[in-house]
Nucleic acid binder design. Structure first.
Lengths: 340, 340
DNA sequence: TTGTATGCGTTATCAC
DNA sequence: GTGATAACGCATACAA
């Protein structure tokens, strides 16, 4: 994030180069801009002079002449993490912090900075602004929805990726949360549970559909009744969701939660009511946050490599040449602890 | 974060305004730039014309003429959270995520963006770059050290604040962790504990000195032996620190940890060894992370309003007029739960 | 192929 | 006070 070109005035200008090369400014300009119609010898002389003088074109003057805006030099600019959500408080999710940190780390290797921005569910104007800003090297959409993907500013395409759902134009990077759900639910099934409820995430979040759907499929495949309650990733939602489940389906003997925070919320309700975990009700989460290991009982949960996913997304933006070879789908591993 | 001025060409130029106002470009320019020597009637005419045409000076042309770089328009630019630390992984601390999110929320109200950057302990060059970048509206230093504060780029002064220690030139915002330490330690003392150890934070972090010092003062004031082990905010450090404490001072009956993660690391060691918490050893933490309430036993800990602190720091940067009236020191409240 | 001349939109320096 | 006019540094039709 140097932006050197803006402030430090170049020590030499085009006319200096031209004079040293023994040509006119026009010729020097032509050579330097790579325009056609320059003799090899003129080109060599200009290039040598430019090299010698360590010439750096003044981006402001160039922008004025060209009629364009000032463009960032290679190695400048920033990557912005654009988090889609119902309210600005979405930014407070620990998930976001992890992603931003990971992006910051890889961006630094490319001389880029990181930005964090909230985008409302109908926030195409925010994306429009990002698209208009030449200093935005790339945008990482987080938790985006279909609508946003559909009317994405066209000039953003090619420098936007998504963590969550994608589209033909925007490559997506995500955890295999369908697989994670399957691992957790089948584990619960194999350990003899049948009355399995799911404390799901926000229903508007499309990338979660794989998770809920897999649960639904598994339950109907086994011929058992599905018990799904939506939530919002908070532990409060886990608590109210658990309460609702207990009320509607008193015989429930296992719960799969969309994330660890929700699982912990559920567990707190359970222990408060004297329900034993896992003896009476088994609980499985998803994310494998640090506390999952420290809690007692230890939370059985699926890993969620948020940092790796975000870093990969950032790399795809900053190093387009390797983008195709990057993993797009990240596996989750079920970590068996005590709650299930 | 509009940066509109860069890309969208102004629809009207200075000459248009001048023509409509019936004056020369020179006069129009003088009026618009606020230079001296303009007649009231000329000023009125120009202002009216500019208003009518919705005139916006082209920043690129202005920059070229003025010889400066392109400056952000009022309401543009960004605030960067500069986290000081030994390695880039410092960025992964949940504390950082919370701070960035909070800053992002208030920055948005001012049309500013947020950036996140890592600054090494000897990272004056990184700060130099930030100072040179006119698009940086302000810098929020996090966990800074004295050295960095001493050779801060001079032109950064006035748009840099600190979360942690400050200096005469850079206002600091921080939690009262001395008070937090006192509340926790005296609580332990009042509940009959005497052999109180402290699992401290990184020794290089100056803003933590108030915390450790208060513990030391309290212990020596009571005439008891101090037992302090440094760590690094991780739960791993809590585990190894707890092990060390147990080894060196087997009769320890209470522990105050610099943060909740460290406290949980200590507790896991304790429970693994069959030591009962709080019966045998009481544990108090600091931060009051969400998990502190959900863990069982619930963690007794001091609140740490990171979000409010960061938001206030951002406000001080973006609204200098109210900066003096902003709180600089944020109280911590001891939340009594089960571990102490 | 090369050089000349002019434009990009503003600010600053002059005379007036 | 005001209006020409020359920078600012570069790009590019156009003429040579």
């Amino acid at each position: 994030m140097a932006f050197r070109a803006f402030t430090d005035r170049a020590d030499s200008k085009l006319s200096d180069v031209a004079r040293l090369a023994g040509v006119s400014r026009s010729t020097a300009s032509r050579v330097l801009t790579g325009a056609a119609g320059t003799s090899p010898q003129a080109r060599a002389a200009v290039l040598a002079a430019a090299e010698k003088l360590d010439y750096q074109a003044n981006p402001v003057a160039r922008a004025l002449a060209i009629g364009s805006g000032v463009l960032p030099a290679p190695g400048e600019g920033r990557v912005v993490v654009a988090v889609v959500g119902a309210s600005r408080e979405t930014l407070r999710d620990p998930y976001v912090g992890t992603a931003v940190a990971a992006v910051a780390e890889v961006a630094e290797d490319f001389g880029a900075g990181v930005g964090l921005e909230w985008v409302s569910l109908a926030g195409s104007s925010a994306l429009r602004r990002l698209a208009d800003d030449p200093w935005v090297r790339g945008v990482i959409l987080v938790n985006t929805v279909e609508e946003l993907l559909l009317d994405l500013p066209l000039d953003l395409i090619g420098r936007v990726v998504s963590i969550g759902i994608g589209s033909p134009e925007v490559p997506s990077f995500d955890v295999d949360n369908g697989g994670a759900a399957e691992a957790a639910v089948t584990h619960l099934m194999h350990s003899g549970r049948r009355e399995i409820a799911m404390l799901a995430g926000p229903s508007w979040l499309p990338c979660l559909r794989r998770q809920s759907q897999r649960y639904l499929d598994l339950m109907s495949g086994a011929g058992w009744e599905a018990r799904l309650v939506p939530g919002d990733f908070t532990s409060a939602a886990g608590a109210t969701g658990m309460t609702a489940v207990l009320h509607r389906w008193p015989r429930t003997d296992a719960v799969f939660a969309t994330c660890d925070a929700t699982a912990f919320g559920a567990i707190s309700v359970l222990t408060h009511r004297g329900v034993r975990v896992p003896d009476d009700i088994a609980v499985a989460g998803f994310d494998d946050v640090p506390f999952a290991a420290q809690a007692s009982p230890g939370l059985t949960t699926g890993t969620h490599p948020v940092g790796r996913i975000a870093a990969t997304a950032a790399l795809a933006l900053l190093e387009p040449t390797v983008a195709d070879r990057l993993p797009r789908f990240f596996g989750s591993e079920l970590v068996l602890r005590e709650t299930a």
